[in-house]
Amino acid sequence: MLSRSAQSMYWMGRYLERTEFLCRLIRLQMEALLDRPPRDIHAGWRRLYATLGRTPPGGGLGPVQGEDFTLADSFTLAGDLTFERQNLDSIWNCFANCRENARQMRHHISTEMWRTLNLAYLRIRTLEIQDIWATAPEDFYAGMVAEIGNFAGAAETTMYRDEGWRFLQLGRCIERAQLVSSLLVQQLAMDSEAGEFAELDWTSLLRAYQAAEVYHRSYGIAVHPAPVLDLMVADPLLPGSLSRCFNIIGEHLAALGTGPGQASGAEAQRVASALTHLPESRWPDEVTGRSGLLARAAAQCRELHFLVNGAYFDY
């Protein structure tokens, strides 16, 4: 496959995943606006911005404020992360970039995939935050997640399993692993700063990844960080878990071989293999030991990105 095409497929996957991640977390924020106290809403925004490594508009979030301020602030922050054209990490930009990569790769993806993506793009192309704010903003984010699900379904059932497929999946999984590990690191840091864990914050993480029901079935009603981490990191049966991402990354890299940039390719395989074994052999029992390990995993995902680039795209 042409290297540039492979790179576009990879980026399509990354942008798509980032869009989905943002939609899932902002949807939680919108739902929190219905009934949660300002402290929880504030914590949610803080966690999200810290995960993205991005400064909120106005230079920072400041301390927790009253109801009206929290509502007004949420409008600004949701606007920044959803429709702000100047914010390269906004949902709008991530999705437009995803669609732009798909537009260039129409000859490598199925018609169904293109149509699903293009229709969703046409729907959001001209929207602004005020267009979704008046009614139920959470519906917009839920709709986006559903549309991304349609795309993934169309890909699953219609796309030829060639290298393009592998690079698309590689992009999605590297992005997801990086974001989820950073998100968990941020949550642990916030707990450590507060000197206690916030059960509702951990519950929201489970809900964001459709893991709440599985959690309750396996671990009971009470939500504690250790089992949440066990599930979201080490359970290969959970679709969004890190363990599953690492397995998929390892599988696709093994199938692709080391590529023309052999040194990078070999190193990518080594890093992927180390990540695959992380939840099995090096996963500590206690919560405190897990934070450092997750931070290292996030760093290794970033490294993996550059290694993939050097192995197949820019050798």
Partner: peptide, 18 residues
């Protein structure tokens, strides 16, 4: 930018080399 010439032929850069 995907193409280059070498030894009298044109090549494209692919994920498996030229």
């Amino acid at each position: 930018r995907d193409l280059l010439t070498q030894d009298g032929f044109v090549y494209m850069r692919t994920t498996e080399g030229l």
